[in-house]
Design a protein around this nucleic acid. Structure first.
Lengths: 239, 239
DNA sequence: CGACTCGTTGAGTGATATCAAACCCGGTGG
DNA sequence: CCACCGGGTTTGATATCACTCAACGAGTCG
């Protein structure tokens, strides 16, 4: 399962063995529990998602919450803190979440000493950063309709890639309040926006299941381009 | 000068030599010129700032611009793309900008094969990501006053650390429109907000020079905590 | 059958955007 | 030296998107 993540980025040689040899602990979290808390010193271990969804969040002084990214199977949860001393944000489970934990120091070693693995991790971290940038744009410069459409598109595509859906629809286990916190809107306004999208025929939904009939049109509305997800396999530099 | 950056993160052994041995080219950009353009394939070289300021930006379909981060002397400009194939955003000079360029492949090698250097670069990239997250929060969940105050605080502190100011004040070579694009507001509203901050005695300004009399109070207003900048030297894991 | 969380809807408000004009100032050219 | 120009700043008037407050409905859990 760790391997699944590795191959996604680009082929490795035999250091695949090194990864599989990593001692790891499986762990499950229930719905709204914390994997990591803002302000804590970094943990001794580093975890990534085996199944389920999680999100990163930060709090403003007013108490307002901002969800900063969403993660699904195959994503690292605290790669972002692998080399830092303090957690600058919290990570929380969105539904039943299964993670695999490995020793932080062991992972650091792997990353620093095995070039192929290091490269894979770099790609992962840089793509995460790219997503953050896109979110800054999303939240900073797009109107409500575009914002939530964009979120739906991103999650859809990433789920599809992770093999969790066929791109036609999926269950998004987020409350409208959480969606609002992710795109910088009120739950009330998210509700209205979702209804508007539905009445335009851009999405269909019942409960928390979302369905897309015309992804192309939705993407147009969402100002969505998959470029920032860097889905192309990164070459070891064209040599 | 490359060294300055390295020591900032944490001491290295003799691979300092490896860095200094890197062939590099100095280059200067004038005010509004591009260092990198969104959508381009990654360059053959990787540059970081010797002097001057630069910023990253992305465009929405409406033509609206979002500035996604600001960089000053010592910052890497395209570390963010070191292992990716396409630029997902543009980088532009804010004033006269001097950069040092090194071969991308040479840098990759260094990062992947020399653990100490790799660690330093990791820290740099992860801190950048942390700043992106803070910006998502800033733009998503704070009101105008807090947003621009926060931007002023961040730039001030980072400049101070880079030795470019004493924290009492500095020249911010951004138009109000650019400030707006950085915090997700209109230039008009930025103007009003700045005036409000000034009339509250939180900042003094003439032209583009900003002066702080009571940084503590400004930070309180800005909801600013330096935690996300991860200024503490990162230890190679407490061993 | 409460009690709770989440979703939905309405009415009223407010923060920020939009539009437009005036102003300031450094630069340039006559 | 002055007139003009252009980019940036400042200000006012008005518009609007999204927020707030509040209530109600539906589903779920004990």
């Amino acid at each position: 399962m760790v391997r699944k993540f590795e191959t996604r980025v680009h082929l490795d040689a035999d250091d695949r063995a090194a990864i599989l040899a990593l001692p790891h602990v499986l762990r499950t979290y229930e719905a709204p529990s914390y994997v990591l808390r803002e302000g804590e010193p970094s943990k001794k271990h580093c975890s990534f998602i085996v199944s389920g969804l999680a999100f990163r969040q930060k709090l403003a002084a007013t108490g307002a919450r901002q969800i900063v990214s969403i993660h699904l199977a195959g994503d690292f949860l605290d790669l972002q803190h692998l080399f830092l001393n303090w957690a600058d944000h919290s990570v929380q489970a969105l539904n039943r979440l299964q993670t695999a934990e490995v020793e932080r120091s062991a992972l650091q070693d792997l990353v620093l000493k095995r070039p192929a693995i290091g490269r894979a991790m770099w790609v992962d971290a840089l793509v995460d950063a790219s997503i953050f940038r896109e979110w800054v744009l999303n939240v900073g410069r797009r109107d409500a309709r575009t914002r939530v459409a964009h979120l739906l598109c991103e999650v859809s595509l990433r789920m599809e890639i992770a093999g969790l859906t066929d791109g036609q629809g999926y269950d998004l286990p987020m409350t409208q309040e959480q969606i609002g916190d992710a795109v910088g809107l009120t739950s009330v306004h998210v509700n209205r926006t979702l209804k508007a999208l539905a009445s335009e025929g851009l999405i269909r939904r019942e409960k928390r299941h979302v369905q897309f009939d015309d992804m192309a049109r939705l993407r147009a509305v969402a100002d969505f381009s998959a470029l920032y997800l860097h889905l192309d396999r990164t070459s070891p530099l064209p040599a």
